[in-house]
C-alpha cells in the first residue's frame, strides 16, 4: 500500500501533462517497481506503453531504435548485430532474460544510471536521442542528455521517443562489463569502444566508461590521443595512463574507487584491442 496511482494516458500530450517531480514514467517497470520503495514522494506512475513505439528500423543511412524496444529485441536484432555489435553485447549482459524481456532501452537511458549497460554502447555509435516535452520534440546527441545520476536534460518533464545512429561501414565496436558475478550483476565498471577507421588509421575514437562517475563518460583525452593515429602506433600503456588519469571514481557498496580506477583503465585498453582486432 504505497498508494500509487497508475495512469495510462492515451496520447503523448496527455502523458506530458501528467509529468512532474512526483510522477514516474513506467514502461517495462524493472527499475520503477524497485525505485518507488525509496521515493515516498512519488504518487503516480504514467504508463507509456501504448503511446510510445517499439521496434528497430533501418533507413538508408541510419538505424532507429524506438523507446519501448526491449533489451531482448536489441540483442536479437540482426540490424544491431551488423551496425552496433557493442550494443548487442551490452544488452545481452544486462541482468538476465526476464529483465531483458521487460526492460526497455528508452527506460534504461531515461533512468540515467551511471551503471546502465546500454548507455556506453549507444554512445560509441554517436547515438542521437529524440525526446518530447512541453516545448515539443527535440533531438540531441545522447552524450549531452545526461546531467547527473538519475538526471537528464528532460528534468522529469519529457519522454524519450527514439534513438538514431548513422550506419558506418568503417565503425568497429566492442563492449566489456565487469560485475561481481557472471549474471544478474550491476556493473562495477563497463566500457564501450567505437573506432571509425580508415584502413588501420583511427579517424575517430569513442572511449566510454560507465560506473566511474556520476554519468557515463567519454574519456576525451584518450579519444584525442587515438585521433588520426595508426593502431600499430598506439602506445597501449600511454593510452592506459590517459584513461587512468582522466577518471576519479568513488567507493560504493559494490566496489572501491581504487579498484574501479585501475580496472576501468585495464578494460578500456582490452576493449580497445578487442574493438580493433575482433570488433565489427
Amino acid at each position: 500500500m504505497v498508494g500509487l496511482s497508475i495512469v495510462k494516458p492515451t496520447c503523448l500530450e496527455e502523458a506530458l501533462a501528467l509529468l512532474n517531480d512526483d510522477t514516474f514514467v513506467i514502461a517495462g517497470g524493472t527499475d520503477v517497481a524497485i525505485q518507488v520503495h525509496t521515493k515516498p514522494n512519488v504518487t503516480k506512475l504514467v504508463d507509456v506503453n501504448g503511446i510510445l513505439k517499439k521496434g528497430i528500423e533501418e533507413t538508408k543511412d541510419s538505424v532507429i531504435i524506438y523507446a519501448l524496444t526491449t533489451h531482448t529485441d536489441v540483442m536479437e536484432s540482426p540490424i544491431i548485430a551488423k551496425w552496433a555489435p557493442a550494443l548487442k553485447q551490452a544488452c545481452s549482459q544486462v541482468a538476465a532474460t526476464q529483465i531483458r524481456n521487460m526492460g526497455t532501452i528508452g527506460g534504461n537511458v531515461s533512468n540515467a544510471s551511471p551503471a546502465g549497460d546500454s548507455i556506453p554502447a549507444l554512445l560509441v555509435v554517436d547515438t542521437k536521442v529524440t525526446y518530447v516535452d512541453a516545448q515539443g520534440e527535440k533531438t540531441i546527441a545522447l552524450k549531452d542528455f545526461f546531467t547527473g545520476p538519475g538526471k537528464t536534460v528532460m528534468n522529469k518533464r519529457g519522454l524519450v521517443t527514439k534513438f538514431e545512429f548513422a550506419k558506418a561501414d568503417n565503425l568497429k565496436t566492442a563492449f566489456t562489463k565487469v560485475g561481481k558475478r557472471n549474471a544478474m550483476a550491476i556493473s562495477v565498471v563497463n566500457c564501450a569502444v567505437g573506432l571509425y577507421l580508415d584502413g588501420d588509421k583511427i579517424e575517430k575514437a569513442n572511449i566510454v566508461l560507465g560506473s566511474i562517475a556520476p554519468t557515463t563518460l567519454h574519456i576525451k583525452k584518450a579519444e584525442e590521443y587515438l585521433f588520426g593515429r595508426k593502431f600499430a602506433e598506439v602506445d597501449l600503456n600511454a593510452f592506459w595512463s590517459l584513461v587512468f588519469n582522466s577518471i576519479n571514481p568513488i567507493d560504493d557498496i559494490r566496489s572501491t574507487a581504487a579498484y574501479r580506477k585501475q580496472v576501468a583503465a585495464n578494460v578500456a585498453r582490452s576493449t580497445l584491442i578487442t574493438a580493433y582486432e575482433g570488433g565489427k
Binding site: A33, T97, I99
Partner: peptide, 13 residues
C-alpha cells in the same frame, strides 16, 4: 509467451 517477473509488474498493466 515471454518470461517476465511478476514481482516487478503492476497487475493493472
Amino acid at each position: 509467451g515471454v518470461s517476465e517477473l511478476s514481482c516487478l509488474m503492476y497487475a493493472v498493466m
